[in-house]
Design a protein around this nucleic acid. Structure first.
Lengths: 144, 144
DNA sequence: GTCAGATCATTTGCATACAAACAAACGAGG
DNA sequence: CCTCGTTTGTTTGTATGCAAATGATCTGAC
């Protein structure tokens, strides 16, 4: 008889999935900053890319589509508004809503940075070969 | 002759690895909050777990070991100090350094929450079967 | 020994994040 | 038509997260 199974492994921070996730996110953010950091932040880009994808929407809905809560999307929208990348219109059907839409300048910005955005995604998974990449994305999607 | 390869896929936010990474991190944070949110934040836990692992260290070094920059670890350390989970001693060999160490209360806190911390890591990868989990961790580590 | 370059800790400024609380407006059921 | 339970947008407060600048200190090359 040994003490097998009675002894638990130590809790090593480096081995915890949450910690590794954080480091990978940090690396992704660094890649983003290197390519587009002069021009825009990751969250502001996400909001504009989604707006470009789906067209005008309410602020809260845009937040839900970009995984930002109401308080967070408010700040992001305010900063995009200040730069005149987006504009608002009142909704005739719902007095609470403000429709958010890309301005011409905002649309031009998205198109100009389209390739860089693709490249950031590619760089992020560059350490993986194509098969590994497919597997990784598939498993990652199961965890969201 | 067709136009194959001339047409690029659209940039869909949902498909970008950075966006999925963010959602998985959000889910992990939610699991953390559900289990330990009343007691501590993820970053404060990371700092204490690392201190428990390696013993007393300087603030900057602790930051490096927990993937926090100097400004971030400062705030985390201040809040842990206020709760008296950690304490500081001056370093006889280097007047710039302040050695940070767990207090008895801090050490007791870590031990008390050890199991919950393990459980959070397990829950995070629960949607994967054991083989998938091994593969996922292995690939994730290649991206950090 | 001294001095330039590195390290440690701190501070400021800006940009997320999210819980909690609110007022205004909507919508369905009675 | 009224009311109760949502939804929308906003604000406040706390906690990261990181760039950049600063002052104090250390360290290695000369």
């Amino acid at each position: 008889m040994t003490t097998q199974k009675l002894m638990k492994d130590s809790y090593l921070l480096e081995e915890q999935v949450g910690f590794i996730l954080r480091q990978v996110s940090q690396r992704h953010a660094a890649l983003f900053m290197a390519r587009m950091g002069e021009d825009i932040t990751p969250m502001q880009w996400a909001a504009m890319a989604k707006l470009h994808e789906v067209g005008p929407t309410s602020q809260n809905l845009l937040g839900r589509m970009t995984a930002m809560d109401a308080a967070t999307i408010k700040g992001v929208a305010d900063r995009l508004m200040k730069r005149e990348f987006i504009g608002t219109t009142s909704d005739a059907l719902d007095a609470r809503r403000r429709l958010i839409a890309l301005t011409d300048e905002g649309r031009a910005f998205v198109l100009k940075h389209y390739d860089a955005a693709f490249e950031i995604s590619r760089e992020t998974v560059a350490p993986l070969d194509p098969d590994e990449c497919k597997t990784f994305i598939r498993l990652l999607e199961k965890l969201r």
